[in-house]
Write a protein that binds this DNA or RNA. Structure first.
Length: 465
RNA sequence: GGUCGGAUGGCCGAGAGGCGAGGCUCAGGACUGCAAAUCCUGCUACACGGGUUCAAAUCCCGUUCCGACCUCCA
């Protein structure tokens, strides 16, 4: 596996190019992914990010890396506070409610729990320590109103990730220069307003600004330098620029490479709550299974926009069911569990900046070969292709034999199998005496119940739609 | 105004100088009592106008259209 690990290439937003991945420490990878601001239920754009980086994590693990994966929860921010007032419940109740909604969605799509999942409010101490250091070395200032700002003009490398110039930025209309030295200076810490939650600091009671938490938590769990920082494309500016500003001002090397996933769009526009075009994960899961939604969200390249439509989702699900059907047939024919393996084609695709679409083409090819092997009763060829297909699906988090997807349905499977076998025996007998009216009536009845019958050379098999 | 990205066949979606990605749909065929599943075959495109090249979807110049960030955003 070390050979595969040394062939991994990833795109780095910082230099806008794909290059060989070299870990800071041999055999280990530290990843920090900006997680959710828990102020509403997740829509499929949020969960796409989770799926994309889960695939990255699984691949890194598969090729032999010891991965530390940190995904934070932003549990304090303006929207959460507004919602708390609006719903007349405590701010922490809002945060916890939606944190759970995100956890449920991640679980439904088989996104592995992070190694660590820190909450912003649990790291106030680290944030204060960071601010103290920044003020001590002259990077930040506390003007006395309870806010703490970072002085961005002092930084040489500010805005290098987004390739912008400070003076080219559109001027904010509401820039208040009463306390800020420069309108671009951003708040590390915000003074408490009446009724808002606050924490004591040397500069007065207040709460964290959005950007500070990620620098503090990434540092706490991954150290002064780590390999990969991830997030959505829309976080490049200002969030990630500001993280870099804070962290580098503190003398930390911070992230080695930056990876950003693209959006899920509808009608060409980014899905977002404010546009009113967002589709909640749990709503879509009423139409397709979690494994199918994951297959769909993972099928486009992570840096490409994914134009959502229910038609495309359904097409994708049809494609997945074909692959799933192959694995189930393969298991029946082989009369044994399928051992996952990684084909060289799949590895090559994944090592090329996670070229999942190419990997999918390879999977389709393997399925075709495997299906032909079933027809020709070539068990050796079947075992090989089934193994590769399952291995690939496993990395993509879509292994149909994964217990997380098998669900509770299994408990009644034996009973169901017995009942349907009974009906199929009747049908087989009818077909044997060429009483096709009777055999078709049985099949039609089963079809009406959502059970599909397939006649194979070795007998009839059934599947639930 | 600045920065970044996009336009590919009926649909989704890769690729990024030359051997037609793949999937879905559709049509035909094989198999089947008929189906289903599977396999085979067919339909074969790169927004527009120039240019470079033996060769351009891919490189260069120009144009049009769409989107994102610069306020909270995955």
């Amino acid at each position: 596996m070390t050979k595969l690990a040394s062939d991994l290439n990833l795109y780095n937003t910082a230099d806008r190019a794909v290059s060989k991945f070299v870990p800071l420490e041999a055999g280990k990878v530290g990843i920090y992914l900006c997680g959710a601001t828990v102020q509403a239920p997740p829509h499929i754009g949020h969960i796409r990010s989770g799926v994309n980086f889960d695939i990255l994590r699984r691949w890194l693990t598969a090729i032999g890396y010891d991965v530390t994966f940190v995904r934070n929860v932003t549990d304090i921010d303006d929207k959460i506070l507004h919602k708390a007032v609006h719903e007349d419940i405590p701010w922490w109740a809002v945060a916890m409610k939606y944190e759970r909604a995100f956890s449920d969605a991640y679980a439904a799509l088989n996104v592995l729990p992070p190694t660590y999942e820190p909450r912003a409010t649990g790291h106030i101490t680290q944030m204060i320590e960071l601010m103290e250091a920044l003020i001590a070395n002259g990077s930040a200032y506390a003007p006395g109103n309870g806010d703490v700002y970072l002085e961005v003009r002092k930084l040489k490398s500010y805005l290098t990730l987004s390739n912008q110039k400070l003076d080219d930025l559109q001027s904010a209309d509401d820039a208040d220069l009463t306390f800020k030295k420069d309108p671009r200076d951003f708040a590390l810490w915000k003074a408490a307003k009446p009724g808002d939650p606050s924490w004591p600091t040397p500069w007065g009671d207040g709460r964290p600004g959005w950007h500070l938490e990620c620098s503090a938590m990434a540092h706490a769990y991954l150290g002064e330098a780590f390999d990969i920082h991830g997030g959505g494309l829309d976080l490049i500016f200002p969030h990630h620029e500001n993280e870099i500003a804070q962290s580098e001002s503190a003398g930390w090397k911070f992230a080695n490479i930056w990876m950003h996933n693209a959006w899920v769009t509808t009608s060409g526009e980014k899905m977002s709550k404010s546009l009113g075009n967002s589709l909640q994960v749990m709503e879509i899961l009423k139409k397709v299974r979690g494994i199918e939604l994951r297959w769909y969200l993972g099928s486009a390249h992570y840096r490409s926009m994914l134009e959502f439509s229910f038609e495309a989702l359904e097409e994708s699900s049809v494609n997945f069911r074909r692959i799933e059907g192959f694995l189930q047939r393969a298991r029946e024919v082989l009369k044994s569990e399928i051992e996952p393996s990684i084909s060289s084609e799949f590895a090559k695709a994944m090592n090329n900046d996670l070229a999942v679409p190419q990997a999918l083409a390879d999977i389709s090819e393997a399925v075709r070969i495997g299906n032909s092997a079933i027809t020709e009763n070539d068990l050796t060829a079947l075992a090989k292709s089934a193994s590769e297909v399952r291995g690939a699906l496993s990395i993509l988090g879509c292994d149909p034999f994964d217990p997380i997807f098998a669900g509770a349905a299994n408990t009644k499977k034996e009973l169901l199998d017995g009942l349907i076998s009974l009906a199929l025996e009747q049908r087989t007998a009818a077909r044997a005496r060429k009483d096709f009216a009777a055999s078709d009536a049985i099949r039609d009845s089963l079809t009406a119940l959502g059970i599909t019958i397939e006649d194979t050379p070795t007998g009839s098999r059934w599947t639930v739609n």
